[in-house]
Computed example of a mutant assay.
Amino acid sequence: MDVVNQLVAGGQFRIVKEPLGFIKTLEWLFSIFAFATIGSYSGQFSLGIECSNKTESKPNVKVEFEYPFKLHQEYFEFPTCRGTTSKVFLVGDYSSSAEFFVTVAVFAFLYSLGALMTYIFLQNKYRENNKGPMIDCIVTAVFAFLWLVSSSAWAKGLADIKLATDPELIKDEILACQNPDNKCQEVRDPVMSGLNTSVAFGFLNCVIWLGNLWFVFKETGWTAPFMKYPPPAQEKQPAPDSYSQGQGYAQQDSYGQQGGYQPDYYGQQPEYNQQGFSQGTYSQQGVPTSFSNQM
């Protein structure tokens, strides 16, 4: 119990809630239903005969048959209304389609159980080198095809079994019933609901395995070359802020007018001599660069 709690706490069983694990669980369950409904089947029908000699009449003759439906080996004793009884054999051998269906169901059960345990306990191994999903995809496709073939074959076999076990048709083949002095009637028809359910489970399994094929196929990564990814979004440059630019230009203009760089029209400050004048230099403006006191 502690191990189960640790696995649940560690998220090991989370895969069962995802489509891949959930559908695999359905495959496991419905595979059990498929072979259980046919493998455990046992049918019975009854016939009655009223002979002209009342002492030889038998109102209820039971006929039993079961899986694997080798009907040609099943027989029952029926009165001849002449003081004796005869063995009447059923007709047909439908074991091939029935056994094929059960074999597919059993192997599908075993594989789905093994795959489910792999999903839960060996997830890293399953995804290593992507081999697990590839093998799983191929096997799932094979089983989907086998379910379709086996279910179709078994559906045809079941239709033939219904004809071979129809009391109305069987009594017409009995010699005692061909005598107009004797009266034959069916007492009970075989119940085929279990076999009808097995066919339904077979085609349902086919649908489930086909549906799971898509989810397993996506795990393989084979769809990557066909996927078209949208081009990466380009980063948009911020739009120029006209207000800030205009403010910057205004600052530059005010700086130039109020105290920024001013052209130096005077290369040197004038040097005063004793008379209060000194030689000075001007910048290159076509004006004399120096002057002296003319006394």
Rank of each mutant, 00 (worst) to 15 (best):
G132F: 07
L47I: 15
H72D: 14
E64W: 05
I120M: 05
V91D: 14
F65V: 02
L47Y: 01
A98L: 00
T103F: 04
S57M: 01
Y126T: 01
E99T: 03
V61Q: 10
G114F: 04
E56N: 06
F107I: 08
I49A: 09
T84V: 04
N130V: 09
S97A: 15
K62W: 00
F109I: 15
I120C: 06
H72Y: 10
S112W: 03
M117C: 13
T118F: 06
Y119F: 14
T80Y: 10
G39M: 08
M134A: 12
Y75I: 01
V104Q: 04
E77R: 11
V104S: 06
S46Y: 01
M117Y: 08
V61S: 09
P133D: 04
T55P: 00
L116P: 10
F76M: 01
S42M: 05
A108S: 15
T37M: 05
Y41H: 12
V106E: 04
K87P: 04
T85A: 09
P59H: 08
V104Y: 00
P68T: 01
N60E: 10
A115M: 15
S31T: 04
E77T: 10
V88A: 09
K54S: 14
F76P: 05
L71A: 13
L47P: 00
A34K: 00
E99R: 10
C81A: 06
E74F: 07
G43S: 03
L116H: 13
L90T: 04
L113F: 15
D93A: 10
E50G: 01
F100H: 03
I32N: 04
Y126W: 09
P133C: 11
N53R: 05
F121W: 13
C51W: 03
L122G: 12
T103P: 01
K125P: 00
I38K: 02
T84P: 02
F121Q: 11
R82L: 11
P68W: 00
Y94S: 00
F100Y: 08
N129C: 02
E128H: 03
L110G: 13
P133K: 07
G39P: 02
S86R: 15
E74P: 00
A36P: 03
Q73G: 04
I32Q: 07
F100M: 04
I49E: 01
Y67T: 05
N130K: 14
A34W: 01
F45Q: 10
E50V: 09
S42F: 02
F65Q: 00
Y111R: 05
S95H: 14
K70W: 00
G39T: 13
A98I: 00
N60A: 11
P79A: 05
S40P: 02
L110Q: 07
H72L: 11
C81H: 10
Y41M: 03
F35G: 09
G48M: 10
Y119W: 10
